[in-house]
C-alpha cells in the first residue's frame, strides 16, 4: 500500500541579500509503502534534511509533486492548502528533529502529552501515556514536571522523541534523531521505531550513523550529486 509518491521534486533557495540562488536537490522521485523504512544518504549539504523539510512543507518546493495517500484520499503536499497540511501534521504525518521546541513554562510531561490531548484523548490518559514514554526513553522521573529549557541536550532530545513518537502516524520523517542520545535511549528509540514500523508507519530518515537503525532499513537513496548516474539507480524512478 503506497503512502507517499514523490515525483520530480526540485528545491532551491533564493538568497535575496546575496542576489544568488542555490540548488538543494533536483528531480527526486521515489515512492514509499506502508511499513517501509527509507534511508537518505549523502555528504553534508547534499540536501537530506532539506528533502525531509520539503516533504513536511516547512520548505516550499520549486516544482514536482509530493503525493501523500492520506485517510482522506491522495493529496499533493507541495500544493495543499495550509489548513490541510496543519491537519495532516496533527493526525498522520510526524517529524522528529534533533531539537526540542520547548515552550516557556511548560513542563516536560505536558509537552509530551500535548499531541494526544490535541488528538482528543482525555487529559488523564494523555498524561499517563506521556509519563510512560518519558520513562521508556530514560528521562529521570524527577524531571517530568520540570521545564525542559534547562535540560541537557540529551535529556531534551528524549523529551522530543517521547513527544513526537507518542502518537502513531502514517508517515514519519526522522532528521538525525539519534544525534545526542546515549546507548540506552538509542535502543529505546530503535525499539519504538520497530514497533511503529510493524504497525505500518512508513519512515524516511537521515542518520549520521545508519548503523543505529541498520535492522530497520529497507531501502536507501543517495542524494550526493553525481553519486551514481540516475539511470543506473534502481531506487530512483525516472
Amino acid at each position: 500500500m503506497t503512502v507517499l509518491d514523490v515525483r520530480s521534486l526540485t528545491k532551491g533557495f533564493t538568497m535575496h541579500h546575496l542576489g544568488t540562488q542555490m540548488g538543494a536537490f533536483d528531480d527526486i522521485s521515489f515512492s514509499l509503502n506502508a511499513g517501509e523504512f527509507l534511508l537518505l544518504k549523502g555528504r553534508n549539504g547534499a540536501g537530506k534534511s532539506t528533502l525531509l523539510r520539503t516533504l513536511y512543507r516547512s520548505y516550499l518546493s520549486q516544482s514536482g509533486e509530493v503525493l501523500f495517500h492520506s485517510q482522506h484520499g491522495v493529496i499533493d503536499l507541495a500544493r495543499a492548502a495550509d489548513v490541510d497540511v496543519t491537519y495532516l501534521r496533527r493526525t498522520e504525518i510526524g517529524f522528529v528533529t534533533q531539537f526540542l521546541t520547548a515552550r516557556p513554562r511548560v513542563s516536560a510531561e505536558a509537552l509530551v502529552a500535548e499531541p494526544l490531548r490535541l488528538a482528543g484523548q482525555t487529559a488523564e490518559v494523555a498524561l499517563e501515556q506521556a509519563r510512560h514514554w518519558l520513562g521508556a526513553f530514560g528521562v529521570k522521573q524527577e524531571l517530568w514536571a520540570a521545564y525542559p529549557t534547562t535540560f541537557s541536550g540529551g535529556e531534551q532530545q528524549k523529551v522530543n522523541l517521547a513527544r513526537t513518537l507518542i502518537l502513531p502516524q502514517k508517515l514519519l520523517l526522522l532528521d538525525e534523531p539519534t544525534a545526542s542520545l546515549d546507548v540506552a535511549a538509542r535502543a529505546a528509540l530503535v525499539k519504538r521505531l520497530a514497533e511503529l514500523k510493524a504497525q505500518g508507519t512508513a519512515m524516511i530518515g537521515v542518520f549520521h550513523h545508519p548503523g543505529d537503525v541498520a535492522e530497520l532499513i529497507d531501502r536507501e537513496i543517495d542524494l550526493t550529486p553525481d553519486a551514481k548516474p540516475k539511470e543506473d539507480r534502481e531506487d530512483v524512478a525516472i
Binding site: S70, I75, A80, A81, D84
Partner: peptide, 9 residues
C-alpha cells in the same frame, strides 16, 4: 498559489 482545502471541509 496553493490549492483550495480538500480535507478540511
Amino acid at each position: 498559489m496553493m490549492d483550495a482545502p480538500k480535507i478540511v471541509t
